[in-house]
Amino acid sequence: MELDDLKRTWQESKSQVQSNSSINIEMMEKMKDKYRLKLRKITLSEIVGSVVCLASAMFIAANFDKLDTPLLLGAGVLSILLLLALPLISLFSTRQLSKVGDFEKPYADTLKVFANEKIKFIRLQKINVTLSYLLLIIMIVLVSGLFSDKDIFSNKYYWILSIPLGYIFLLFYSKWVRNYYHKVLQESEELLKELPL
């Protein structure tokens, strides 16, 4: 099949779409509300995540008196800070991505903004993932102070299960994140190289 055939295929499907035309004034009237609803849905998932983090931070703060050793106190303070920082980073990066640009500017300019924002987004997500690792490790320590009257540190089963499971999870998760973001980052950087200055 040659390129001319492909062009013909494109043109043929064009005439068929035209015969099934569906755009009308009523559709235009309904469109505005639907579009707004969609934007709200995107932010809702971010808000739910933030509320969970905030609730966890408040729970730790409310039970701060149970943290009676310097290690547990340090873990408590750090986890609260991380639980506040993680949703802030996530909300900030999503907000950057959701910014509405000027739709009338040249396509190449939009692509430049898109590729740069994507690179920034990936960098922020990498910071987020690193901080999440840290939070997971701190939480393993913190759980012993928050959910048990007796010292979990002395419970060998706690360590036998939590450390290897946490490590395996982190290993696979970090590998997946690295591979996924590496590909997206590479695509964005290659795209930027092709765009005119």
């Binding site: 991505l97 959701s98 640009g101 739709f103 939009t110």
Partner: peptide
Amino acid sequence: NVAIYHLKT
């Protein structure tokens, strides 16, 4: 341009 914005959101 909207298609690119759609990819982002």
